Amino acid sequence: MTNVSKSRPLSPHLQVYKLIPTMLMSIVHRITGGALYVGTVLVAFWLIAAASGPAYYDWASWLFGTILGRLVLFAYTWVLVHHMVGGIRHMFWDVGRGYEKNFATMIARLSPVVSAAITVAIWVVALIARI
């Protein structure tokens, strides 16, 4: 009796493949999806603080207004926007559009640029609205 598993080829794994933009954006899309779970805790914390009264809401506002709090909120905004941009890309793929290699690579390269630009625009509008 021979050992059949020794004659089988190795299954491809991440060390075999060259990292390409579409693969990287797929990985980032999954990571941002997971990060949104953590961000949802922040949203729940803010809502609970708002429902608990002015003292708790003021404390939550102070916390989110610190430098670290704003960095976390900025990162959460980018995660949310980047995941949305990736979701739009997947929506086009679901209807059978955008599979051409050059087009898919171009969209993958544009995703972080577009998500960063939208994130900055959201924060600029929010900061101007506060004035």
Rank of each mutant, 00 (worst) to 15 (best):
A116C: 03
Y99T: 09
I20D: 11
G69Q: 05
A104G: 04
T22M: 08
M23K: 14
I20G: 10
K18H: 12
Y57E: 07
G86Q: 03
P12D: 10
S61V: 11
G65T: 05
T2P: 15
M84E: 14
I118A: 02
G96S: 03
F64D: 02
V113T: 04
S7P: 03
I122W: 01
G53M: 02
A104F: 06
V125K: 06
W93E: 07
I31W: 02
R30C: 15
G96M: 06
D58H: 07
R89F: 12
L47W: 08
W93R: 07
R130Y: 09
G33V: 14
V114R: 02
G39F: 06
V95W: 04
I20H: 12
V114E: 00
L73M: 14
T40E: 11
K6N: 11
M23C: 13
I88L: 13
S52P: 01
V113D: 01
A51W: 05
L110C: 06
R130I: 05
T105V: 14
M1E: 12
W78F: 09
G69L: 10
T105P: 05
I118D: 00
I20S: 12
A35E: 06
A49L: 06
P9N: 11
M25R: 15
G87C: 03
L80H: 01
T66S: 07
F74K: 08
H29N: 07
A121C: 06
A129Y: 05
D94Q: 10
P21I: 13
G34T: 02
I20E: 15
I118H: 01
T40H: 04
A50K: 09
L127W: 07
K6D: 07
V114L: 05
A126W: 05
A129G: 01
R30T: 15
L80E: 01
A35M: 15
W78P: 05
R97I: 13
L63A: 12
I118W: 04
G87Q: 00
G65F: 06
M25D: 00
V95E: 05
T77Y: 00
T66M: 11
W46R: 12
P54D: 10
Y17N: 08
I48K: 01
V38N: 05
W46H: 12
Y37K: 07
F45M: 09
T77H: 00
P12E: 12
A55K: 11
L80Q: 03
P12G: 11
I128K: 04
V28H: 02
M1W: 09
V41L: 15
S7T: 14
A50S: 11
